[in-house]
């Protein structure tokens, strides 16, 4: 494209096709759909659980979240959410950040943040479940 006597008829699209900004394939696209479908019932149940726990004291909240049924739903909600938001914000970063090093830094920060939030929530739920 830049200078040169030979004419290049390849369009910019042709040059980048197959290597998008994230440099990966369709796995993220598909996982985003899977987690969005799973997210519908999980979100509804998580909101209902949150409403049922309003105004209860810590012991009651910990006991209810730690009960098997609620714990599994909340674990599902957290894992689904964290996977979904990691891909979602990754998409936002590659859309808006043209600078390569800044982009990689933010992608790294995104991964760390999502893992941290996910680990905190999973640990807390398991702690309440196993009562240690």
């Amino acid at each position: 494209m830049s200078g040169g006597a030979s004419k290049n008829f390849r369009t910019p699209l042709g040059l980048v096709r197959g290597r998008g900004a994230a440099k990966s394939g369709t796995e993220d696209f598909w996982l985003q759909r899977v987690t969005s479908v799973a997210g519908i019932p999980l979100t509804i149940m998580a909101i209902v659980i949150g409403m049922l726990l309003l105004g209860r004291n810590q012991a009651a909240v910990a006991q209810i979240i730690g009960s098997p049924f609620v714990a599994v739903i909340m674990l599902g909600f957290i894992i689904c959410t964290v996977l979904h938001m990691k891909i979602g914000v990754q998409e936002i970063i590659v859309d808006y950040v043209p600078d390569e090093s800044m982009k990689l830094t933010l992608l790294l920060a995104n991964t760390f943040y999502c893992w941290a939030v996910g680990l905190i929530c999973v640990y807390a739920i398991l702690k309440m479940s196993f009562g240690v």
Binding site: A62, I65, M85, V89, I92, V117, I120, A124, I125, M128
Partner: peptide, 20 residues
């Protein structure tokens, strides 16, 4: 809203960690 929820999840993490 998706980007807001990204940080809103901190509320959820705080709630669960506090309860635990």
């Amino acid at each position: 809203t998706g980007f807001g929820l990204y940080f809103g999840t901190l509320l959820l993490a705080w709630w669960l960690l506090a309860a635990a």
